[in-house]
Design a protein around this nucleic acid. Structure first.
Length: 101
DNA sequence: ACAGCACCTCGTCAGGGCTG
DNA sequence: CAGCCCTGACGAGGTGCTGT
């Protein structure tokens, strides 16, 4: 998504390092041997990834909250329907009893 | 007033699933 | 298969309540 232009891209997966999550390291061919530029790039990528994940987590929680609210509404609707049906059944039973008397 | 507890929110990590 | 997104799990910090 945010990998750019003529960068060559590779990946480091090292849980014990200071980069616990998978970090995509990208280097232009120009800066391949410049450690400082490489380090800055790593930091930038990590911050970007954390920012995106932060927002994704917010969105995920929001979505979950809405889902739960939706389920609660549905429960309320079904409870009302159930109540109505029980009353209807009761009325029909009463009617039937008086008919057979 | 304070400690202890339960509960909530948020950021981060890990890992699975999807897509080009 | 790499890169990305989504989401469960976890820990940290904040808040309100309750017993002492």
């Amino acid at each position: 998504m945010w990998a750019t232009g003529d960068m060559t891209v590779y990946q480091i997966r090292s849980p014990a390092s200071s980069l616990p999550q998978g970090v995509v390291v990208a280097a232009s061919t120009n800066n391949l041997h410049n450690p400082q530029v490489m380090a800055e790039e790593v930091t930038r990528k990590r911050e970007l990834r954390l920012l995106k994940n932060r927002e994704a987590a917010r969105e995920c929680r929001k979505k979950k909250k809405e889902y739960v609210k939706c389920l609660e509404n549905r429960v309320a609707v079904l409870e009302n329907q159930n109540k109505t049906l029980i009353e209807e059944l009761k009325a029909l039973k009463d009617l039937y009893c008086h008919k057979t008397d």
